[in-house]
């Protein structure tokens, strides 16, 4: 199976190709902006490095967000355009799922928490086997303690410290903290898509924004 994966949901861009169970090529671009110019050329060169013609792609993997609205749309537009041309399914993952999949295994659930500012985190919980226990969602900080399971927990991501403070204040047991917050990585995504059940693939996955557009109807 040939998998093309890419991510530019949170700033940096990465692209990876897996062929028959091994990583055939990976490339990244650390610049936080300019993906509208750089993403598709990076996909082109990574496919070439893996010696994979676009028509031979069997699965496309992409992060759907949450992240930068524009970055997420660039990745989703590229995935849907390629899928239309190549005729293959898209396997979309939340950026939190991609981050969780990069962590070492654990015997307790893992919460990935991103500092979303404005008093909110983006959060998603994963079971020890890696499966998501809920959907990616936006949580107000004051609601965190009540929304999370009271048992032992592992915490990672830029919002982990905020969550730990709230849990401590609510008398939860101290969570296990992962210091290095992993960014989504296309190589991890490619692996997730390779092993995902075929039914998870779709033609047109939607971005995960978790926040409405900033717009208010004018006062009457």
């Amino acid at each position: 199976m040939n998998v093309l994966a890419f991510d530019c949901a949170t700033g940096p861009t990465s692209v990876a190709v897996r062929r028959d169970g091994t990583l055939a090529a990976r490339a990244e671009d650390a610049r936080p902006q300019g993906q509208a110019e750089s993403l598709v050329p990076l996909i082109e060169t990574t496919l070439a490095k893996a010696d994979l013609p676009p028509a031979a792609i069997d699965r496309i993997a992409v992060t759907l967000g949450p992240g930068s609205f524009t970055g997420v749309r660039i990745a989703v537009a590229a995935a849907r355009g390629l899928a239309l041309a190549v005729g293959c399914p898209i396997f979309g993952f939340s950026s939190l799922e991609a981050m969780a999949a990069a962590l070492p295994a654990a015997d307790v659930p893992t919460l990935i928490a991103i500092d979303a500012r404005r008093g909110e985190i983006y959060a998603q919980t994963f079971a020890p086997d890696g499966n998501a226990m809920d959907e990616a969602r936006a949580l107000p900080l004051e609601a965190v303690a009540a929304a999370l399971p009271a048992g032992p927990l592992r915490l990672a991501g830029s919002g982990a410290g905020l969550v730990a403070d709230r849990l401590a204040a609510a008398g939860h047991p101290p969570p296990r903290m992962i210091d290095a917050a992993p960014a989504p990585d296309a190589a991890v995504l490619a692996r997730l898509a390779e092993t995902a059940p075929a039914a998870r693939g779709t033609a047109a996955p939607a971005p995960i924004y978790l926040r409405p557009p900033d717009a208010k109807p004018p006062a009457a």
Binding site: A36, V40, I43, A55, L84
Partner: peptide, 19 residues
């Protein structure tokens, strides 16, 4: 620009995918 990015990125991906 947000809309232009969506259309142009889609076009680029189709151009790459279809050669």
């Amino acid at each position: 620009i947000g809309g232009v990015i969506v259309g142009l990125t889609t076009a680029k991906a189709i151009a790459l995918g279809a050669g």
